[in-house]
């Protein structure tokens, strides 16, 4: 079913919205969750929660990109779940690695102060991403939004894994500079 029809189902409070969403994007969202949680059961749970969240969000929201709308929900639910499990640093999978890599972007001292609003950081990140070339930006997001492993990113962009690592390393360096300039010390 086309996205706009699915959205209309949500707006019509028609429960087929959930089954259609699951049918169309279930596997996709599962992959997003699995990359973060590394647990099929937990991933499945987050995917189910995604439809619920979607149900609660539409209306009023009318997402432009339904797939990514769900991806965001899944990612955030999965991350929250992972945090709740208190296994961010210790668990298996790509998330600990991704987070460890991102820590390079933060200044060695001061770091991001707790009182800094997440929203401000989000805006700053969007500005940073906007300043990147498209492919660099996309690779960055495949890694740090979708938490995809390097080989998967390399396949997607037909690059060697080493290239992907190099690009990400440079992008992280840029992000570090950017965040410093933005006052995240």
């Amino acid at each position: 079913m086309e996205d706009y029809k699915i959205i209309e189902l949500y707006f019509a409070r028609d429960e087929r919205a959930i089954s259609e969403s699951s049918l169309k994007y279930g596997k996709y969202c599962f992959a997003v969750a699995q990359n973060i949680l590394f647990s099929p059961e937990d991933a499945e749970e987050c995917v189910n929660d995604t439809w619920l969240k979607g149900w609660q969000s539409m209306p009023p929201q009318r997402p432009s990109y339904l797939k990514l709308f769900f991806a965001k929900i899944t990612r955030n639910l999965s991350f929250n779940k992972r945090k709740a499990q208190d296994s961010v640093k210790r668990g298996a999978g790509e998330l600990p690695l991704a987070i460890e890599e991102l820590s390079e972007c933060l200044p060695a001292q001061g770091l991001v102060e707790e009182e800094v609003q997440a929203r401000a950081l989000q805006k700053a990140l969007n500005r940073f991403l906007a300043s990147l070339p498209q492919r660099e930006r996309s690779i960055f997001l495949r890694r740090y939004f979708f938490t995809e492993p390097f080989p998967a990113i390399a396949r997607r962009y037909r690059l060697k894994e080493a290239n992907v690592r190099l690009i990400l390393s440079r992008t992280r360096a840029k992000l570090k500079l950017f965040l410093e300039k933005e006052g995240y010390k």
């Binding site: 965001k72 998330l95 997440a118 950081l121 989000q122 990140l125 991403l129 740090y144 939004f145």
Partner: peptide, 9 residues
């Protein structure tokens, strides 16, 4: 925090 903030990209 950074990872979380990327959720709002």
């Amino acid at each position: 925090q950074l990872y979380e903030a990327l959720g709002g990209v």
